[in-house]
Structure formats: C-alpha cells, structure tokens
Design a protein around this nucleic acid. Sequence first.
DNA 1: CAGTGGTCTAGACCACTTC
DNA 2: AAGTGGTCTAGACCACTGC
Lengths: 245, 245
Amino acid sequence: MSANLTSLATFSPLYQQIKAMLLASLQAGEWQPGEVIPSEFELAARYEVSQGTVRKAIDELTTQNLLIRKQGKGTFVATHLEERHQFRFLRLAPDSGLPMALKNHFLSCKKMKAPAIMARALKIKTGENLIEIERVQTFAGKAIVFEQIWLPSPRFKGLDLATLEAWDGPLYALYESAFATHMVRATEKIKAVTSDSMCAQRLNTTLGAPILLVERVSYTYGNKPVEIRLARYDTSSQHYENTLS
Amino acid sequence: MSANLTSLATFSPLYQQIKAMLLASLQAGEWQPGEVIPSEFELAARYEVSQGTVRKAIDELTTQNLLIRKQGKGTFVATHLEERHQFRFLRLAPDSGLPMALKNHFLSCKKMKAPAIMARALKIKTGENLIEIERVQTFAGKAIVFEQIWLPSPRFKGLDLATLEAWDGPLYALYESAFATHMVRATEKIKAVTSDSMCAQRLNTTLGAPILLVERVSYTYGNKPVEIRLARYDTSSQHYENTLS
DNA sequence: CAGTGGTCTAGACCACTTC
DNA sequence: AAGTGGTCTAGACCACTGC
C-alpha cells in the first residue's frame, strides 16, 4: 500500500481505501452475489496491508449488508436469494404478529417510454425505454399490495410476463439470478391517500378507502438507481413497521 | 477481567462484557447525557483489558447512537439536546425537499388511568397513573401533526401544561433535562386511516380525508418503554421518509 | 488437521483539541 | 506539550467448518 503522506490532500485511512477497492470489485462483478470472496489474509497480501486493516474494511461492508461473514467458512457477497435476506426490504407485517406469506399475481408487463419524473429518478434520459410491471400480492386470499414497477429496459432485457409468472420468490432475487443486478439500498416516501378506481379494483376496496402509498427507489452498487416502485398497501389489518434509533 | 474459561457456559467475548458494563453505567446514570465518559485508556485500566478491547465495545455503542466520539476531546453520552440529534426520530419531510421547522401547540396535559392495552405496551399495571398530552404541530400556519402522548406518571412527576408551553424544543430534550430520561430507540407501526371528527378538527381537514397514523413506543436504557405516541400526519404535502438497507 | 473468521494484546504513530 | 480518539501492525490464540 502506498504511503499515507497525502500531504496537502485530504487524509484517507488505509482501510477506507481498501473498502473502496473491495466495493469496486463488487461493482465490477469480480465476485458474484452468494460467492466467497478471498480470505482476509489473502486480501491483506494482495493490498500489502495487515489482516486487521482488511478486517476493518470488511467490517464496514458487512454492516452495510454488502458482505456476510460466516465463521470458519469465509466472507460472502450478500444476496437476496439467501433465506435471511428474502424479506429484507418488506416492512409490511400483519397486525396479528403472525408471519405473513404473500402470494404473487402478475397483471401485466409492458414496454413504455420514460416520462420526465421517472427518468430523473432513474438517472436516464426522458423517453428512454422502460418496462412496466403491475403486480398484486395476496395473503389468505385477500389482496394486500398493488404495485407498479418500472425498470430501465437495457438492464432487464428479455423480462416478460412469462418469466415473471414462472418465478416463485422475491423480485429482487429474480433480478440477481436473471439480470446480474443486486439491490443494495432503497429509499421510500410514504403517504396516506384514498383509493382511486384502479386501486379500488386491484385491492378490492371501496372507492375512497384509506391506502398507504409507498414510493420506492432502489439502488444497486455505486448508488445507481435501477427500479422505481409505486406500492399501495391495504393497511386495514396490516401495518408498516419501522424502528428508529 | 475474569478468564474466558466459561467452559460449559456460552462463550461471550470480553468486549461484549465491557459493553454490558458500560451500558449498566449509562443506565445507572453514572454518566449523564452530554457528559464525557472516561478515556479509553482509563476504562482499559479499570476493567483490566487492553485499549483495543474497550475501543471495540465503545464502537458498538456509538453505532447504536448511545455514545458519540469526538476526536481530541473524548467520548460523550448521546443527548437529544445536541443539535445533530434534535430530529433523529422525526421522519416527516416536506415534499418540496426544503427543511421544515414545526411549531408546537400544546392542547392539554391531563392525568388518567392506564387502560390495559397501554399498560401492556408500557409494561406497567392496568389502572396505574398516566399523563396524557395532546399536541398539534404546525408548519407555515398549517396544522401538520396531531399527537396524543402517554407517559407513566412516576417518571414524569410534575409535568404539566405550563412546563410544556414554556419549553421550546423537542419533547425528548425536555424529558432529558427535566426528567433524566433519555430515549434510545423507538418502534413505529404505520397505517393509512381516514380523518375522524377529532382529527379533522385538530388538523383542519375534511372528515374522511386520508391520514397517516403512526403508533410509536419509545424506549430508554434497558429496553424500558416510557412513552406511547399516537400521531396523525397530514401527508397532503409532506411524506414519511425511510431508508432500507 | 488445515483454513476460515473472531478476539485480544502491546506498542507505535497520526490527527485533533486544549492549555 | 499533554491528552484524547483514530489508525496500523504483528503476533498469539480461540471458535467454527469441512475434509
């Protein structure tokens, strides 16, 4: 590793530089989701630093849910295919407290041109190709979630209704296995609205019923936005859970 | 520090034991919010471990927002009186993206007996004394938030409307300065509902308007619940923000 | 048994604050 | 200059996994 004599430049600890290099390798796809990365000693040798320094870099990446350590086995690239990460981004829970298993019902998968608002959120140009998915999720026969999902076509080339209907599991897992896209982070904006006619039909509610509207933008490595989701939750017997600390 | 020969017992790393002792000191009020705790070397000497071990314990407490490090100055007990922690628990943001300064309007502060549901959430007995506060918060003259707040009387003895009206700042900061109670964590359950008559009056909305209902339980040291809050947000031009990772 | 991550130490030195 | 947190190292040993 080069000396720390950054002189006038801003000081950056070694482990931050290592972290950045690991991040670059993840983004470049050098190690795929679910795979082991080299051992701490191997990385230490590669970057010519001590094991403790590599360890600190990996520590931060694990707290960001980008890597997962398994004692005795190695350090792995996080994946939504993993059991424990299946519902990492789902904050909806039944009031009863019992676990909830949602069932997918895909309504459509169409092509469209990106309107200005979506283009801005996805950092693409207005009018570029998007894929629009409509989905309803049910629990015990009752429709709970109605979502519209928009994806940039280039990254998700070939995604169609047949593919979706053949898939049994979280969409984020499909993105990984079929489109080499791992979601790292998402931001949500939540509002209370009233059910419009489309929403009332999909969720089988009365017109004007209260609906939780969740607007989500999901990001892959490098803070790249690659999915917009507009979800409507029927919160009559479910709620959105959050922890503040 | 005692040896690690926990033999049959479950293994617990030294730094976890140190962390538990620091936590106990915080809970016991040995160091008050805003104060410095002893230096890492001092603590290392006290517990007869190396500085690195104390450091790792403190590391975890800082990521939990219980302690705050300041290079060159020391490590401090986190406080809601601190600028950067003022709005740690407020997730409501204006759609415009501009900063929002809410103005307090306290409506009432009454005594009542705890109904069963609240008693369970606060881990007290049904019928014990509670304080009930009603508050409206406005932004640019428009009522945005209507909250009912319930506190166990013993801990908040002497809290009345006059005290509240004299206070200018977050309630959590008042709890700290007047009742030695520091909030550490909170859980929220969020639903979309329609405005009832009380809510419509407080928030000046139409009856049946969509309202974001947020049920919050806040905890102090030792996972002790000490506040219940039932908030209604008018999300017509604000939204609740959340980040998933 | 070897290889992995996890803990702990002792010591050196850097960066920042205060006197 | 002294005291604090922050970084980095080298080495020892523990806990867990898999051959």
